[in-house]
Design a protein around this nucleic acid. Structure first.
Lengths: 386, 386
DNA sequence: CTGAAAGCGCTTACAG
DNA sequence: CTGAAAGCGCTTACAG
């Protein structure tokens, strides 16, 4: 008998009790037939990951060639011309051993890491998920790997960006934030690290793909005005509301209200739990009497707008009957509402595609001293909330 | 003048035109004052990432010690006792150079990679985002890095899981899927790779944290039955509907309907674009006459349930007036609906926490031959949709 | 208390 | 057409 089953509880039961969960249910696998199952093997020797994997040297030995030759063949190095027969022998050996090159060793030895870091502000907004999905697909297609900045934090403030500094990358694709953390991350090397900004840039001396937030938001606002709305409130995250530098969406709102001769009304929310905070705002606005209530809520993005929508409805208001609602980004979730959201669609695929192209150009031409900036327009999507 | 600004368009314009976007708007940065901005530096020599970063050797040289000594100090190696003065000198040198250890080299040299791979089926379901967030936080706290399996694909089918095989990891935390891709990824090494399964396991000879889906779904169904619902339809993804092995949620549904003497009604949807597909199902059910319509829709998870909810409402039905609706998972988005969703809450933090504990135990005790399995219960959340 | 040295798994000129 | 060798930036016994 090569093993025994053992239901250990380590700290889990304490954990469960501490959290108020009734109890852990042990799984009943006492069936003796388990014991002659073939899937368990004896574990012997070092479990170091390195020991598990066949190396180039293993492949070389099996094919009776040198490691250099194997490397040339497997990487399709055009400078080395290896005999067809040898190539096939090597590929067969690699296949049989299930050889997978060790990325770490490859990066160490080569002059390129062949990977690109992506920084996005949060994973808790489906828009940035689609940015990551689209970026990764492009990056893989171009023969690079993507390293996602470990932004897996609920609160933006607690993220340790410097962590990305520990992952060797050839360059950074960065959806910009309220402040530029580049120096914080890369220290003195920041100025020499190829970086392409997405979304917006604070600086003329950088490369990046801007989204034309100003025009996009202006289109949204004009649409509301055309529909007769005059009393527009802007729903905006705290960090954007507070930051001294101008935000293009906020600018567009200010300009529109000014030219309308109306009153600026800012509704702020804490940045995390965007949808839940939006819902609370919707409830609060819904509780106002019709006289003082805005006739349209212009939201900073779709994610918060969805929450606001539900809050308004939960408060008994009709959208757009009693009040209009708009978002920004064009995420699928907004279009899945019973009344699809009116919004400005940001083409994440174009933004990422252009950004990656720029970045790889910079990586592959390190002497490049020119910077490239481009602005990509958004598209107004008229849904059923206006 | 050390640079010139140049608005290049490479393929972007073609891209934009091809996609039907009107035109790219060049950014007007012709202001000549740009040119004496100090942020641009001349780029000289190799831009290889390696060249950018100070190495251990640089720190050693600066502190006039050997690289071994620097390594001992910076890693706090308890076996080596280094003089306080030397330690301080080394730390100061590292600080001044902005030294960041190269993870790749460290992993190559050391016997542990100190990183854990996480595999989840999709990022397009907020539940799995929270799994990633929670897992990463725990993993970092324990001194490991997390490598997310590049599952950034819209369609589950196109994912190349073998890609994870290229990232050296000490072990794998895997939220299981319909089929176990372990062998596909790791080949012959699969049986020696420490793996902990989350969610469910097909095998007695593995370690993992099960979620008690059966009891959870049974609670949901009993709740509906208590509220007088008798005509229950099950909304389920195609892969689950088709797979031969039993799914615990599906089993619970079959058992409940059988004991009710009712009729099995399965509504399937394609796995990707879960929310949009759910909406379509909601619309279809809403179009049925009241006589043939189910009186409750039991959804496989919250993500699809949210779509169904909107579809039903868009079709003019009242939830729960005309029809009840339930989800599974307990994601925040479900609780943000105007009528919060009735669901079974899966405690992702407990599941991940226990799983990571198990995995690290296996990594650090490679000879361990016992397997640990535990089941974690879900909690019924009664919302406003039943 | 500190250093010299081997080695992790690769890539890449450079020989032959 | 293929191999021997240096080297990437670290860790870790092993000396001294």
């Amino acid at each position: 008998m090569c093993c025994y089953m053992n239901f250990k509880y380590i700290n889990y039961q304490l954990l469960l009790l501490a959290c108020g969960w009734l109890s852990a249910t042990p799984i009943d696998k006492t069936d003796p037939s388990c014991y002659d199952c073939a899937t368990l093997v004896h574990v012997r020797g070092s479990m170091s990951n390195n020991a598990l994997r066949p190396s180039l040297a293993d492949v070389a030995a099996k094919a009776s060639v040198s490691v250099g030759t194997v490397s040339h063949v497997l990487n399709g190095n055009p400078k080395a011309r290896i005999a067809q027969a040898t190539q096939e022998r090597i590929r067969r050996a690699a296949d049989e051993l299930g050889y997978r090159p060790n990325r770490f060793a490859r990066s160490l030895a080569g002059k390129h890491v062949r990977s690109i870091g992506l920084m996005i502000p949060t994973l808790n907004n489906p828009f940035f998920i689609s940015v990551a999905v689209v970026a990764q697909r492009r990056i893989l297609d171009l023969g690079y790997e993507m390293v996602l900045d470990p932004i897996f934090a609920q609160e933006w403030a607690v993220i340790d960006h410097r962590r990305l500094g520990y992952w060797p990358v050839d360059g950074i694709l960065m959806w910009t934030f309220t402040s530029q953390p580049t120096n914080e991350i890369f220290g003195a090397q920041a100025s020499r690290m190829p970086i392409v900004y997405l979304g917006l840039m604070n600086d003329a001396y950088c490369s990046g793909v801007q989204v034309d937030f100003y025009t996009g938001m202006t289109r949204v606002l004009n649409h509301l005005i055309q529909r007769g709305r005059r009393n527009l409130a802007f729903v905006v995250p705290e960090t954007v509301a507070n930051k001294p530098s101008s935000d293009r969406r906020r600018e567009a709102y200010f300009d529109a209200v000014k030219s309308l001769g109306g009153e600026i009304q800012i509704l702020r929310y804490a940045d995390d739990h965007e949808m839940a905070n939006g819902r609370r705002i919707g409830l609060e606005v819904g509780a106002l009497s019709a006289r003082v209530r805005p006739d349209a809520l212009v939201c900073y993005n779709d994610n918060v707008a969805i929450g606001v929508y539900h809050g308004l409805r939960a408060a008994g208001l009709s959208v757009p009957g009693d009040i209009s609602l708009t978002g920004f980004d064009g995420i699928e979730e907004g279009q899945c509402l019973d009344n699809p959201l009116t919004t400005a669609m940001v083409p994440a695929d174009l933004v990422c595609g252009a950004g990656i192209e720029m970045l790889i150009e910079r990586i592959e031409n390190p002497m490049l001293e020119q910077h490239t900036q481009i602005a990509i327009p958004t598209r107004l999507i008229v849904g059923a909330t206006t």
